[in-house]
Amino acid sequence: MKPAPFDWQAPETVEAALALKSVHGDGARFIAGGQSLVPAMNFRVAQPGVLIDLSRVAGLDSLAWSPDGSLRIGAMVRYRAIERDAEVARHLPLILEALAEVAHPQIRTRGTLGGNLCHADPASEMPAVMLALQARMEVRGPGGTRILPAADFFLGPLTTALAEDEMLAAIMVPPLPAGAGTAFLELARRRGDYAMMGVAAVLRRDGAGRCAEARLAFCSAGPTPMAAPGAAALLVGTALAAADIAAAAEAAKAEIEPMGSVQASPAYQRHLAGVLAARALTLAAERAA
């Protein structure tokens, strides 16, 4: 399990990185934390001819808050930096709750949010979380910068909307609506494994305590992170009572397309989606002011 040979490039600017990618095309891969790419290379499932290391590119590794409360996470920010950031814990606890389920500290030391999102594994937690948080992707290419909503970024298993000559520069997470409650729950065979099913829930109540906004997003539930807008819509206007949540959780099961794995049959995954959605919504409802 040794990787095939490749050339190593370690540019120091985004422009240089993009230029290298333009030159080498799809024979080249960007490497961020490498925690998904290197195992694939060790198995020789991935054999890029050129690796473009982003770790020395200036400006990709910072967390920055805007005055409007949105968070800009540079594509090379390591998971450990995010999970240790007190402000993230305070304002975006959903990220923290989900990060605790992402592999193990040894992986999070090196792993980056940007690399994870570009890897676009539908079983991964963070794409679903970014969907639930309505994050926007700052994509850099030779033609400049474009912004993609998370919903448009993930196209299929291990497939994103990034063109061959583009890279993800940052993830912009808008502030949660005031008083919103969030929850992330998953069931994995072992802690740190990819989930058999996972769900991120965001709920906001209006002044009367009724649900004003609901979002649900699942991982391991289809070819991409899967939102369940129909189920979420059912909740709006309800008091978020147990029966309301149960109905939404049931509806969500019809909106996902679990594909099954050696760990879980599609039928069991769908069953889990209902169970976990109900539990996550209940938690989020309790947490919503």
């Binding site: 065979r189 760990q263 049959s265 069991y268």
Partner: peptide, 8 residues
């Protein structure tokens, strides 16, 4: 067994 198999 597994949770999935037990469910089945």
């Amino acid at each position: 067994l597994s949770p999935s198999r037990l469910w089945e």
